[in-house]
Amino acid sequence: MDLSTTGVAPADGKALAAASTTVVLWASAFVAIRSAGDHFGPGALALGRLLVGAVALVGLLVYRREGLPPRSAWPGVVTSGVLWFGLYMVALNWGEKQVDAGTAAMLVGIGPVLIALLGGWLLREGLPPKLLAGMAVSLAGAVVVGFSMSGGGGSSVLGIALCLLAAVAYAAGVVSQKPALRHASALQVTTFGCLIGAAGCLPFAPELVSDLAAAPLSATLDVVYLGLFPTALAFTTWAYAISRTTAARMGAITYSVPALVVLMAWLLLGEAPAMLTLAGGALCLAGVAVSRRG
Results as ranks from 00 to 15, higher is better:
226 L>Q: 05
288 V>L: 09
119 G>A: 11
186 A>D: 10
80 S>I: 00
109 G>A: 11
16 L>H: 08
183 H>T: 00
211 D>I: 07
39 H>L: 03
31 V>N: 04
171 A>D: 03
188 Q>C: 07
32 A>L: 11
229 F>Q: 01
14 K>Q: 11
75 P>L: 13
283 L>E: 06
237 T>Q: 02
258 P>A: 12
69 P>C: 13
137 V>A: 11
192 F>D: 00
17 A>L: 15
271 E>M: 09
118 L>G: 06
256 S>L: 14
39 H>P: 01
206 P>H: 12
220 T>K: 13
221 L>E: 04
83 L>Y: 11
94 W>G: 00
70 P>K: 14
210 S>H: 14
129 P>Y: 09
274 A>K: 06
33 I>W: 06
24 V>G: 05
44 A>T: 12
255 Y>R: 00
85 F>T: 12
22 T>K: 02
52 V>K: 02
207 E>I: 00
241 A>Q: 00
215 A>Q: 03
22 T>S: 07
59 G>T: 12
201 C>F: 02
68 L>F: 15
163 C>I: 08
35 S>R: 02
133 A>R: 07
271 E>H: 10
161 A>E: 08
173 G>A: 13
175 V>M: 13
248 A>I: 00
29 A>M: 10
38 D>W: 10
209 V>N: 06
213 A>T: 13
165 L>W: 00
66 E>M: 03
166 A>T: 03
187 L>Y: 08
200 G>E: 00
92 L>H: 03
213 A>D: 14
140 A>L: 15
15 A>V: 07
237 T>V: 05
265 A>W: 02
136 A>G: 14
222 D>H: 15
168 V>P: 02
70 P>E: 15
286 A>H: 03
157 V>T: 15
127 L>Y: 01
2 D>W: 13
240 Y>H: 12
73 A>M: 09
81 G>Y: 03
2 D>N: 07
92 L>V: 15
83 L>D: 12
255 Y>D: 04
239 A>E: 08
65 R>Y: 02
187 L>W: 08
71 R>A: 14
176 S>F: 15
211 D>T: 00
24 V>A: 14
225 Y>Q: 08
252 A>D: 01
124 R>A: 15
134 G>D: 05
293 R>V: 07
95 G>Y: 11
161 A>R: 08
187 L>A: 08
285 L>Q: 15
272 A>N: 06
65 R>G: 10
263 L>G: 02
254 T>D: 01
206 P>M: 05
129 P>K: 09
147 F>N: 04
282 A>M: 09
89 M>F: 14
14 K>G: 10
185 S>A: 09
72 S>F: 08
43 G>Y: 09
216 P>K: 04
167 A>Y: 11
58 V>I: 11
245 T>H: 07
100 D>P: 05
194 C>I: 12
249 R>W: 01
175 V>Q: 05
57 L>G: 01
204 F>L: 04
177 Q>T: 08
